[in-house]
Simulated scan of single mutants.
Amino acid sequence: MTQVIRNSAELREKVAGWKRSGMLVGVVPTMGALHEGHMSLVAQARAQSDRVIVTIFVNPMQFNNPDDLTKYPRNEAKDVALLDQAGVDVLFAPGVEEVYPTGFATTVSITGVSEPMEGAHRPGHFDGVATVVSKLFGMTQAGRAFFGEKDWQQLQVVRRLVDDLNIPVKIIGCPTIREEDGLAMSSRNVRLTAQERQIAPQMHHILQQAATQLRGGALASDALTSARAAFLAAGFHDVEYLELASVEGLRLLPAANEPARLLVAAWLGDVRLIDNIAV
């Protein structure tokens, strides 16, 4: 049965016991509202670790929009049931005061890979991500951490963080899990209206069309202009960014002349959706 721990000292004591027995500890950091995408990360963690911790913490530092923080879905009872069924050893669900106690004054900031796309449109977001991930790694003392490729830029930020600060944890990226119609699974999908849910899968399909053009030699400027128009025609009312970027370093590219990723963020009603695919 999954044990729920909310205190970092208690968690570290448990992890220390596991490690004394020679066990490899894996962690899956989440903000809760768990779905099949999260559970695929849990499955990877179970396959590659002796003990698995899932963390649930809706991190206020990474929300630049207070309304988005308020609306973020939360259902811990349902999450615990899913984790218990999946054989997770510990759910670490600290309160805000446990993660950011009175007097907390440290922020972890990463330049370069964090600056375009999400970084440009959500000021301070990746500082919040880097800070809380650093804390969660310290609290859990895990040897492996599992992140979804759906948040591709976040995955690269976490890799940079671990490399730069010599944090002894191996970062493992796991494939995006999609609904049958292609929509990338996300906790925010539950906020889509029935009509918006019919439109949302177009995000993946339009990315696929643009990627096909890029693989055929099209310039990014041409392929992305066509794709942006397709998003608006499909019913997305604002495309925040749509970029072709290098896999390593997320440098914006004029064409797919090296391993690349196509990344998008767009609004559908009052829900902001993101996705990415390899080119």
Rank of each mutant, 00 (worst) to 15 (best):
F146S: 04
D79Y: 04
G37H: 06
Y241D: 08
G235P: 13
A210F: 05
H35Q: 07
T225H: 07
T2S: 11
T193D: 09
P259F: 09
A77P: 00
E36Y: 05
S21L: 14
Q208E: 15
R6T: 15
M139V: 03
A130W: 00
V264N: 06
E149A: 00
Y241G: 06
E196S: 05
Q85D: 12
G87Q: 08
A210Y: 06
A184D: 13
L192E: 08
L136A: 04
P123N: 12
S114P: 00
Y241T: 10
D151C: 00
W267A: 11
D164C: 01
R51Y: 08
T193F: 10
V247R: 09
G26Q: 08
Q3N: 02
V157G: 08
Q202C: 11
A260C: 12
I199C: 07
D222V: 13
H205E: 10
K71L: 07
G148I: 02
D164H: 03
V4E: 07
Q141M: 13
V54H: 04
L91G: 03
L253E: 09
H125K: 08
D68Y: 10
H121K: 02
S21K: 15
E248S: 12
E115T: 11
G87K: 06
L268Q: 13
P175D: 10
E118L: 01
A223Y: 07
D79P: 04
R51D: 12
V157H: 00
A200M: 06
A229F: 01
V80P: 02
T111Y: 00
T102V: 14
A256C: 14
A210R: 02
V157L: 01
V162T: 02
A81L: 13
A255D: 11
K19V: 12
Q3L: 11
F104H: 15
H125V: 09
F57M: 13
E149Q: 14
V239N: 04
R188D: 13
I172A: 14
T140M: 00
K19I: 03
A265L: 00
V15C: 02
A16D: 15
A194F: 03
L219P: 00
I177Q: 10
P101V: 11
D68V: 04
V108T: 06
L244Y: 12
A16M: 09
T30R: 02
H237A: 08
G22V: 10
G17R: 14
G37D: 09
H38D: 07
